[in-house]
Design a protein around this nucleic acid. Structure first.
Lengths: 157, 157
DNA sequence: CCTGGCCTTCACGTCAACGTCAAGGTCTAC
DNA sequence: GTAGACCTTGACGTTGACGTGAAGGCCAGG
């Protein structure tokens, strides 16, 4: 199949597929006229990449899974390198969840503090201002990051 | 005080402060030689911005807090517009936490599936491959995003 | 033969929140 | 008077995962 069909079947764009190839995650035979030619295994590979991106992996982190599949394994996570990424991601995720829950708790406290202040007629105590509590939820060795922006499918755009 | 002192006291850079001014979040008097001149209120304002950025707000979302402080309020979250941002952020945060917990659960399941497969001698069933379960945790109306990359303080860099 | 729909490579644009020069003005200390 | 530490504006660079053209090749239908 050609690049357009693969893109459509994977719910993404041709640009994306060429980008993956550029990054060495995808490779393609060429037909007689120089067009890229893909097969069912490539489709699986792209779906794997898209799926992993969707759960917060970055492109580089999908590489072990891709190489695992290309090595002939049935699943991309059968190889030790993939499992290592899983474990690392799990730890990151836990740190991220913890931090968000901390922020959430402070936010809720802040919200019902403003609510009570309003009910008390504008002259209540405001023990905390954002600047005072927000620092307490900042990670001290700053965690690498904490982001989940899934890839946008063609139709979600 | 001049920009360098304010930057140091706020744990950030002069470039950052000029950027905030450029975005209309900060304003400065000028002294006789054209240098920006800040006071204690400006310091509070910058601390508020940095604190909010630290808990996942983007710069635009800090604006109501800044305007609230500039309107003379004791705290940046005393104004309705700020509270509205709080509520919106709380909802986003909840969605984000839910999603991460979903991913986490799948990740854990996947990890001990590979573990058992390994223990069973490489020929066990692998009912799930990343591509099969990852899609199930993708938000259907794609949530705007889900990111927490706090601002880096000068010394954390 | 021509139109339209694929495909090719190259290369610049996007977004946020700044970092990093460059070229020059100002002020204090020695 | 000159070094050095500050300040000014302006403008380009960074990061990831692509988007968006431009300029042109290939191929099927009419």
């Amino acid at each position: 199949m050609r690049i357009g069909e693969l893109a459509e079947r994977a719910g993404t764009s041709t640009r994306t597929l060429r980008y993956y190839e550029e990054r060495g995650l995808l490779s393609a035979r060429r037909n007689s006229s120089g067009y890229r030619d893909y097969d069912e295994d490539d489709a699986r590979l792209v779906r794997e990449i898209r799926a992993l991106l969707g759960i917060g992996f970055d492109l580089e982190e999908t590489r072990p899974f891709v190489e695992c599949l290309r090595a002939g394994h049935d699943a991309g996570d059968e190889c030790p390198a993939s499992v290592a990424v899983y474990r690392r991601k799990l730890a990151e995720l836990d740190a991220c969840i913890d931090r968000m829950q901390g922020i959430r708790a402070h936010l809720v406290a802040q919200l019902d503090q403003t609510e009570r202040a309003h009910a008390a007629g504008e002259h209540a105590d405001r023990p905390a201002t954002p600047a005072t509590w927000a620092a307490s939820v900042l990670p001290d060795p700053p965690e690498p990051r904490c982001a989940l922006t899934g890839p946008l499918t063609k139709e979600s755009r």
